[in-house]
Structures are given as structure tokens and as C-alpha cells.
């Protein structure tokens, strides 16, 4: 009896130490914890473990090493910022120049990086729903279901926290309605309306971003880079032993590239006035990339290898970055 009470008291101490540690050492562990939200925007750091490319580009710009952002991304994970040096991404001297700006704590994105991330996630949803539609049109609602589910299960949860501040009308219910109808009443004519409502929900979320961003080729190219990055990894997950072994991942990547094409089609007329050669280069790379997904039905043997797809993606990204530097 005396034993248990002593133990209980002893356990309070570690709990206290834990909470102190959380506040002092690793407050950033929770992007969810309010403690992180108090730092002023000027002192916000870039989380090298999770930052999107366009955010890492700020470091790249300061150090002046081409494609440093990609190298930082490829050498993840980092237990501490100093691992940028031990993993030979930066020299000690280069690291010292940026060390106040990098972190491994989960810091909320701010500014343009946050907006690109927001738009990308909505774009991924649109990509999922594009391929869902292809299956629905073929009267294959069961095959469409994973692509209706992913936006709810994997992506919406990531956006939920910023819907209020962006004054976005929540659209989870519209996605869920589509999911339920595809599952239980796919033959109902109402499905078409429900699909349109889901798309409408995503589009009105995008519309909360200012026009200056949504019509800005530089901004949209940032989004396209992120979308293609996601497509490349899904494609890599789809192929094994020279075959398309994971159908869902093949279809995911198809959807992401299709939507990236749509985004590009919207900015190309604007961009062509200032930079026609690069518009042509990006369009050619995208079209070449698109051949990897000849149809919603995965080909028996992949049209392009994973490496070929990655190379084509890289070429779009690099040209896009050059546009961005103007």
C-alpha cells in the first residue's frame, strides 16, 4: 500500500520534467501546440525535415548552390539542423550563415510557402477526383472509391487547421457525400451533381487565395513543382519489378499530372508574353511526362521507367525555377 503511493508520487516527477522539456527543448514538436504560434513571423524558421521546395529555395538563394533545395530534401531526416553539415549538404561556414533560419521543429508555414502548400493540397485533391471521375464515367465506382477517400483521409486533415483563418467554407461534408454515394448509390443520377459540389468546394477554397497569386506564373509553377513531386513518388511506389504493381498509386500519379497540366494551361497564356521559349520547354516536358499514363487503366508494362519520369519532372521544375528567378 505504502509502495504504491510512493510510486505514484515518483511518477509525477518525470511527468513534470516531460512538460518542462516540451516547453523548453522541443516546443516545435507540436505544430499543434499553441506555444509555437506565439513566435513572430520575422523569426520563423524553416523546418528542414518538412519544408516544401519553394520554402527551401530561400536557403538555396542565400547560399547560391544550384538545386540545394533538392539536396536538402533528399538527405532527410535531420535529428538536428547541424546534420546539414555532418551530412555534407553544407560546409560549416555555409551553415553558420543560415543556422538562425533553420530548425527541425514543426513550425507552421507562413507567407507564400504556406499559400503554395495550401494550393498544392487542394490541387492534389483535384487530381484524385479527376481519376475518380474517370472510373465513375466507366461505371466502376468501386475503383473510384480510394480516390474519393484520399482527399478526406490524407489531405483534408492537413488543411483543416487553416480553413477558419482563410475564411474557407468547410467542404468536408461535400467530399463525404460523394464518398457515400459512390459507395451505396453509384447509379443514382444525383452522383453527377454531388461530384460537381465536391469540386466546387475545393475550387472555392482555392478562390480564397488572392488573384495576384493564382494568376502569377511564378506562384503556380511552385504549385506545379510540388504536385509533380508527389506524382513522381506515387509513380515510384506503383512500379516494382518492371510492372505496374500498385494500381491505386499509378492512378494517383496520373491524376496529379493531369491537374498540373490544367494549372499550366491557365498560366501559359500569361507567361508566353514574357517568356515564350520557357513556356514551350515546360509544355514539351509536361507532354512527354504525360505519356507515362496513357489511360486510367494501368498499362501491362510501364511506358516510362521511374527514373525517366523523375528526369522529366526535374526538367519541368528546373525550367520553372528559371522563370521564377525573373
Amino acid at each position: 500500500m505504502g509502495f504504491s503511493s510512493v510510486r505514484q508520487r515518483l511518477f509525477i516527477l518525470p511527468a513534470l520534467l516531460l512538460s518542462l522539456g516540451l516547453l523548453a527543448g522541443c516546443s516545435g514538436q507540436g505544430a499543434q501546440t499553441p506555444a509555437t504560434a506565439t513566435s513572430s513571423p520575422g523569426t520563423r524558421k524553416i523546418n528542414i525535415n518538412s519544408a516544401i521546395l519553394s520554402e527551401l529555395d530561400k536557403i538555396e538563394g542565400q547560399i547560391g548552390i544550384p538545386s540545394l533545395s533538392n539536396r536538402i530534401q533528399a538527405a532527410r531526416p535531420y535529428a538536428s539542423p547541424e546534420e546539414l553539415v555532418s551530412k555534407k549538404i553544407l560546409t560549416q561556414e555555409q551553415f553558420d550563415r543560415v543556422k538562425d533560419q533553420v530548425s527541425v521543429e514543426d513550425v507552421e508555414l507562413v507567407g507564400e510557402a504556406k499559400d503554395i502548400d495550401f494550393m498544392t493540397k487542394l490541387g492534389l485533391m483535384r487530381g484524385h477526383l479527376l481519376v475518380a471521375k474517370e472510373w465513375l464515367d466507366r461505371k466502376q465506382p468501386t475503383l473510384a472509391l480510394p480516390h474519393i477517400g484520399h482527399p478526406i483521409e490524407e489531405i483534408y486533415v492537413d488543411l483543416e487547421g487553416q480553413l477558419d483563418e482563410r475564411k474557407v467554407k468547410p467542404f468536408k461534408a461535400a467530399l463525404q457525400k460523394l464518398q457515400v454515394q459512390a459507395q451505396f448509390s453509384a447509379n443514382s443520377p444525383e452522383l453527377t451533381t454531388t461530384y460537381a459540389e465536391a469540386i466546387q468546394g475545393i475550387d472555392s477554397a482555392m478562390a480564397t487565395l488572392p488573384n495576384t497569386q493564382r494568376k502569377d506564373p511564378r506562384f503556380i509553377l511552385g504549385v506545379i513543382s510540388e504536385m509533380l513531386d508527389a506524382a513522381g513518388t506515387e509513380y515510384g511506389a506503383a512500379i516494382s519489378n518492371g510492372k505496374v504493381s500498385a494500381r491505386i498509386e499509378y492512378e494517383d500519379s496520373r491524376g496529379f499530372v493531369l491537374y498540373a497540366q490544367q494549372l499550366f494551361a491557365e498560366i501559359a497564356p500569361i507567361l508566353i508574353k514574357s517568356d515564350a521559349p520557357r513556356v514551350k520547354a515546360i509544355r514539351e516536358s509536361l507532354n512527354k511526362l504525360q505519356t507515362a499514363w496513357p489511360a486510367i487503366e494501368a498499362p501491362a508494362t510501364p511506358v516510362m521507367s521511374v527514373d525517366q519520369v523523375r528526369t522529366a519532372i526535374k526538367s519541368v521544375e528546373l525550367t520553372g525555377q528559371k522563370v521564377a528567378s525573373f
Binding site: F11, L18, C26, Q29, G30, Q32, N49, S50, V157
Partner: peptide
Amino acid sequence: HAAAMDGIRPIRNGTATIYEFDAE
């Protein structure tokens, strides 16, 4: 462990995170 360490939040492909807690 604390709620922030509960591992519910999806970690995007290509990104990393650090979970830290006392073993109890």
C-alpha cells in the same frame, strides 16, 4: 504520452518528423 506526440497527424511523403516522449 502528450497529445502532440500521438502520431495521428499524417506526415507527407518525402518529409520527416520527430516524435519524442518518456517511455511509460
